[in-house]
Each structure stands twice: as C-alpha cells, then as structure tokens.
Amino acid sequence: MGVVFVVIIGLIFLIIFLLISPDTDSERENAFLIESKLASLTANIISDSSIKIKECKYASLPYMLSYCLTDESYGECSSSDLVDLGGESYCDAALIIINDTLLWPIFAEQFYNYSMILSYQNGTMIKSISNGECTGERFSDRYPIVTSGSGTTLNLDLALCR
C-alpha cells in the first residue's frame, strides 16, 4: 500500500517537473536574438567600405577581399606586422585583420567559437577562417558583401557556437 502511494506521489511530482521543465524554445530564441545581433553588426563592419586600412594604402575591407577572387599579386600591404603574419596580399591581410582585430576580441573573448566563410553567390568557397570546431548550439547567417571596384557580390557566412 505504502509503495503504491509513493509511486503515485512520484508520478505526480514527475508530471509537475515536466510541466515546469525549461522552455527551450524561449531560451533558444533569446540566444538567437543576441547572436544574430552580434553577427549582423560584425558583418556591417566587414562590409563597410568607409573603413580604410592604413597599412594597405587605405583600401577598404570589401576592396581588399575582392583580391581573394583573383590570383593577381598586386595590391600589397606595406605593414611589417601584416607581412610577418603572412598578409602581404590584400586578401590575406584583410582576413588577418578580420580575424585578429575583429572576430577574436569580440567573439572568442566572449567564449564563442566562430567561423567565417567567404564564398561566391553560387556557393563556391573562396576563403574561410575559424577559431575552432563548433560542437554546441550554433547560429549561422549569410550576409552579402559588395566588393568595391569590381562590384561583385560575395556571400559572407558567419557562424557562432558555444
């Protein structure tokens, strides 16, 4: 009799426990709102042609990224820091600046893992950078970047995870 009573009470508590279990949709929605805001603000900076890189003859990031589309070697940065890091060409320098100066301090220092993929509109990947593998919850979105000069539109895929 006692055992049956305990089992019934246990079942009642189990039902209550399930009823108050976390609202995962709400939690996910909040995280999504925060990550989507952070990612879109970051994409705004990368695609902003008014930010000029003084070490690379005051070229903008979208313009420097347009060099990732070609094998042409002209468009070289003069900064010894960037050259030491392997960023002699505009394309590599842009990726180093984006990774070291923007994505790392904003995302990695907030305990996010990130990946950024630059691709053609047809989906062919051009370059990618990341700070590690994503194993947890993941947010990703695609932002267009219009490269100055050629006017080509590239896709910038930013993914964040924890």
Partner: peptide, 21 residues
C-alpha cells in the same frame, strides 16, 4: 557582459573611421 561591435569615428586617428565594440 556583452560586446556590441560598432563602427567608431575618431578624427584624431588616421584614418578617421575604424571599428571596435
């Protein structure tokens, strides 16, 4: 703690427009 990426205009720096958070 949350870090919001922003464009920063600062005429004392060269170039005047940069970024931060």
């Amino acid at each position: 703690v949350i870090r919001l990426p922003v464009v920063i205009e600062n005429d004392t720096n060269e170039p005047g427009i940069g970024f931060g958070y």
